[in-house]
Design a protein around this nucleic acid. Sequence first.
RNA 1: GGGCCCGUAGCUCAGCCAGGUGGAGCGCCCGGCUGAUAACCGGGAGGUCGCGGGUUCAAAUCCCGCCGGGCCCA
Length: 1063
Amino acid sequence: MGRVGVLRGQYNPHEVESEIMKFWDSGRIYEIIKELESKRTKYFRFIDGPPYPSSGLPHVGTSWNKVLKDSILRYRRLRGYRVKDQPGYDCHGLPIEVAVEKRIGTRSKKDIEEKVGVDKFIELCKATVLENVKSMTYWFKSLGVFMDWDNPYLTLRDEYIEAGWWLIKKADEEGLLVNEKRVVYWCPRCSTTLAEYEVEYKELSDPSIYVKFRVVNSENEYLLIWTTTPWTLPANTFVMAHPDATYVKVKVGNEVLILAKDRLEAVMSEAGMSEYEVLSEFKGKELEGMKYEHPLREVVPVQEVLSKYHEVVLAPEFVTMTEGTGLVHAAPGHGFEDFIVAQRIEIGDIISPIDDEGRFTKEAGKYAGKYVKDANPDIIEDLRQAGALLHEGIIKHRYPICWRCKSPVVLRTREQWVLKITRMKKKLIEEVRKARWVPEWALNRIMNMLENLQDWVLSRQRYWGTPLPIWVCPNGHRLVIGSVDELLKYGGKKPKELHRPWIDEVVLKCPVCGKEMKRIPDVIDVWFDSGIAFYASEAHPGKIKNPEDVVADFITEGHDQTRGWFFSLLRAGVLGFGRVPYRTVLVHGFALDESGREMHKSLGNYIGTDEVLAKVGSDVFRFAVLQNTVWEDLRFSWKLLEEAKRDLSVAWNVFVFASTYMNLDGYDPTKHGIDQYLNHLRIEDRWLLSRLNTLIDEVTEAMEEYKVHDAVRALKRFIVEDVSHWYVRLIRPRVWVEENTPDKMAAYATLYHALKSWLIMAAPIIPFFTEKIYQEFIRPATPDAPPSIHMLEWPAPREELTDKELEQEMNAIREIAEVAAAARMKAKLKLRQPVKRVIIYTSNDNIVGIVRKHEELLRNLLNTREVLIKEPSEVKEVIQYKVEPKYSILGPKYRKLTKQIVDYVLKNQAEVAKDIITKGKHETKIGNTTIMLTPEELNIIPVQATGYAVQEASWGSLAIDTQLTEEEIADGLARDIIRRIQTMRKELNLPMNAYIEVTITPPEQHVKYIEKKLDYIANEVRAKEIRLTKQHPASIPREKILTKKWEINGEIYTITITEIHGT
RNA sequence: GGGCCCGUAGCUCAGCCAGGUGGAGCGCCCGGCUGAUAACCGGGAGGUCGCGGGUUCAAAUCCCGCCGGGCCCA
């Protein structure tokens, strides 16, 4: 059909990428691929874990995430799947609100509601998100990611919100949605609840007090607790102990204190008590249920209610031995852990007797009206009066403060809407196991989380989020709405959009009492949004027929998402459809800086995607990061990228080489495929074709197993080591032959086939690079082929061309060549210098066979007249041997004696070697056992021989005969001269097929060598005329003539060449 | 404090699941090549395989305990 095209120039990623980007756009390549896909029957349902668009520029970790996804989706397309490739963005949530607040300078919810207006605020949030989504999309496209960028799922859309409501309603129908008290961070100054990310930590000073709680029914026994928040004591409900820790009863004065043994010394020393006596020791679990009296019960009315709970509770997960007394004061209204334990033991009264400004309420009796921190001194004094204070001190510690106003935060309870997912625990565990986790340990991680499952606090007292679809009437009836239609059904109307504040204006009629219903003001935790992506990205669930249709075949995110997205998907999947909503989960690592720390703008080690693309481009980035073991953390550095670029340059140069020669010779792959040249394939061709088959198998398997890094590494090894370093080197002389011999065409056919297959397999990894080469090299010869490489079919291995044995043999040949190079190095013999013989000393039958079989190839590679194989014993030149014990044979045979035998052998190498060579055995005594060592148990390796350069190898050693005859010297010299003339041709910039005339003036004593080789030299350098002169003629200045003095082996040669025109 | 992952050459990492006496790339040093050429190729130096125990004839590899880093949780 035509000849292959030529790929020109150096690899320039920026040029390639901007050109290909334009080509994809103008050629509507992505759209055409989607059209082709629409006819396919195999479906690969991928769900994109939506990035959070709080900025318009993706972190390199996010970019890694996206190109990893892209490589897998592209692979699936090449494998003939129809791929769901809709990207998503997680649009709601506090970080967006914070970004907007920073921009407009608001300081509180009050500001938002009164100064700005919620409607305006929401519009700003939305505008910010959409702007960032646009920008991020630009960067993702620049990375070469083929996703449906015109149709992303956005969690802010009304349809998406509606889909979320459906699930809330479903949860309510199953009785899982409840309103109950939860512990929250609360800023007393801003009068608002704070999310975790709104809390900062700061070193603060606080009281540190030890308090005695008298044990009921005892005269003088006390539980000793420690606290830095005396103001939480009025709400004390119980005391926690560790069941397995050792506790002691200690006599101090006439009182007996109970505390952990490990804390005894520290506490006594801090309290300044040296006189004490340990009365007994016992395990914490013996304390379980021990009742105590609260020292402030007289002045704090709410203690009336709480006194029934006053006892010791076992809570191993929350009691530490690093501070305090090992007995922990618990106020479930003021602490997360306390609250969890309170729930576990089903305490009905969760008390936090403080108001929105952080002042005690009248439940706290005496302290009512006081700001809690100001009440600390009063409380401490009252404890002292009650004789309950053991010691008072000051502690400096990290304490949470409000990120906005910097005032210390308190923990208090507040009513929240909660999903009682702990009731689904068994089902969640059962379902999560059904997914395939890559790597397998990811399952352990999520299982660990499920074991410690907590209920899900859904409600947030914020604005920019999915509104919680709960309406209540003054009579306390509650209605959960599952769709816009239901709004209408209950007498409401469809608002401008489903966000606050518009949804808040929708008033419904209570189906029970007919009164007006208003929506509760909360929005839903942003994790809820992304968790429903598996169905909400597609359709309102009412339209979903079969739950299987919304199950994702594949998802992948970083390992931090175990708790995050993987988990929220699981909850939503089980809740809505009774099953885990994904089949395979690939967990990937974190992008860290080069010293393994997190990349942060504040640490100054942050590298942005924009910078990466500007410096090295997309393919280099992709090729670098996709080599990293997927699930391990990535140490990102410029060095990493440079290395990737170097590898891609080598690959590029291979294509430059191949395309240049093939094009020059008019190579047409449609006429000259490997099938036409099967009978002309040389050993290296067969080898490369077999290696290719192996590569196809490896890459395919790796991609199927989601080990993208294994695929990339295999692709790299093949193109760099097998093709560039080895195959191209071997076929060079064949390519330089002038006529299109079958031998040359066989090499072309082989190379073309290997390169094209490689290109397709590399396309998911480096889409621009491969597309460019496809366009320049492949397509000109095959104009009927698809317009883009990304539309081709994944290569199939041609099993009949696989020859694993040959691959092994070639490995051995490569090792022999390397060992020979090392031996030449020792003797300072350059490869150009032919040698008489190379001896291979080995008793390894495998090597012997290979050397015999591939002797011709080896002679060429080693540049030697002959290759001999000898048993070490056969050569008298050898003057020194090394003996290597074969552990895998000696070990099982001699067991415990092995070590001594090995020691003996290594100490007596010369003797042992001599015996083995001459007698075929060596006898010795180890202890009183007689040991007979045989050649099978030892490797005898010649390491020195007279007249030879010897180099060790894994199978023995190799020796090069260093004595050169005249013939060999002449050959070597001829090749030296050829090389110089070739350089001069190039310097004159002569066309490759130009003829020349050569004049050489060698040192007199070498004339006789060169004379013999004139024909050979002339032939190699395309010289019509070649002559030797004693006196070099002055060079006549004219076009295309060049005279140079060269130093070869320390002597001067003068050479002149000039181009001859005509025949 | 708990769960999971990682720790191998100066740097980045393979090898570990299935034990047999440590590899690659980069960097460094030395050399080669010169019709892929602002490329390319070869050789060399460089390692108590985080530490300590255990199992075994034999441990980077299996087991236990520490130490350091990461993620998540508390």
